[in-house]
């Protein structure tokens, strides 16, 4: 960005006989100026690109949208105001409404826990086969990584929708969808942890005659397990949100209840479900941040 250049040594260049150091200073000065020019150009370019992306994006989005930008901006918080208003109208009775959705919340949390557990085990097993430092064969690692790419890229909602068509509107559809996605996502993170693991214990075990499974179990697992658990907890947090979302296609839990009530315009119920969901996410966020700090000894970011 705008870098205020005070030309160093400009007072020295007045003399007719230029010393070596003067020329050197001039060289530095000119190369500094060119670096500054280039940086300013890059900065300008970035600002232009960002402006074009944002302005163009909003224009295109507004054209595709059924409402307008300015019409929406002024009514941004009308809906939350409406549902909170309806909740307040109920008075203390609103808490009975909240209580009504606790079983759905428990279902959502159970979906998240079970699918995280399946994904943790699946991703853990997969990651050992997908780490370059643990598997000799390059084609195996390459193909495992591509499998992981595809499992991660498939949106959970699509899998859930498909599962709902096969097994009906059951919570198990959500478990299947989220566990599938989690396996791919955790396998990638785990394999990165594996690749950063200290290889000396593995070599030691190999020297002592340990086979591949033994080397993984006693050489790698103890060093990577804290990180695995930390990522698993983070994933649990993500999966609570995900299991609430896939409920929207009929796969049980809070999402299903939310979808129904949004459709029927039951404001107080919508407010109750959103309240439960947000409160749960905040609680899990705090608990898992605390637990991850204990596991890895640092603030686990991302």
């Amino acid at each position: 960005m705008a870098s205020d250049t005070t030309a160093p040594g400009s007072g020295l260049s007045g003399t007719a006989a230029r010393s070596l150091s003067d020329r050197r200073i001039e060289e530095i000065e000119s190369s500094y100026a060119s670096v500054v020019r280039r940086r300013n150009l890059y900065t300008l370019l970035m600002i232009v690109v960002c402006t074009v992306v944002i302005a163009g994006g909003f224009r295109t989005a507004e054209e595709a949208n059924s409402g307008t930008f300015w019409g929406g901006i002024t009514a941004l918080f009308d809906y939350p105001a409406d549902i909170i208003g309806e909740a307040i109208e109920r008075g203390w009775g609103w808490f009975a409404v909240v209580w009504k959705y606790v079983p759905a919340l428990i279902e959502t949390i159970n979906i998240a826990i079970l699918s995280t557990l399946i994904g943790f085990v699946g991703g853990g097993l997969l990651s050992f086969v997908a780490s370059r430092n643990l598997v000799g064969s390059k084609p195996v690692v390459w193909s495992m990584r591509r499998v992981m790419d595809v499992t991660r890229a498939l949106p959970e909602l699509v899998l859930a929708l498909f599962a709902v068509l096969i097994i009906g509107p059951e919570a198990l559809a959500a478990v299947f969808a989220i566990a599938f996605h989690t396996t791919g996502a955790l396998a990638k993170l785990f394999s990165e942890v594996n690749e950063n693991a200290d290889m000396r214990p593995v070599h030691g075990l190999q020297a002592a005659g340990g086979n591949w499974v033994q080397r993984m179990r006693f050489g790698v697992l103890p060093t990577v397990l804290p990180n695995f658990l930390s990522y698993g907890l983070l994933r649990l947090e993500i999966n609570v949100r995900a299991s609430a979302i896939v409920g929207f296609v009929g796969a049980g839990g809070l999402g299903q209840a939310l979808k129904t009530n949004v459709g029927w315009r039951h404001g107080a119920d919508v407010a109750a479900i959103m309240f439960l969901l947000i409160a749960t996410i905040i609680v899990i966020d705090y608990v898992s941040t605390w637990a991850r700090r204990r596991l890895t000894g640092s603030a686990g970011v991302i």
Binding site: F58, A61, N65, G67, A75, F77, Y79
Partner: peptide
């Protein structure tokens, strides 16, 4: 869901 009520269906609510 909240912004769909304000902007109507479309990518603006997504943004």
């Amino acid at each position: 869901l909240i912004f769909i009520r304000a902007f109507g269906l479309g990518p603006l609510s997504g943004i």
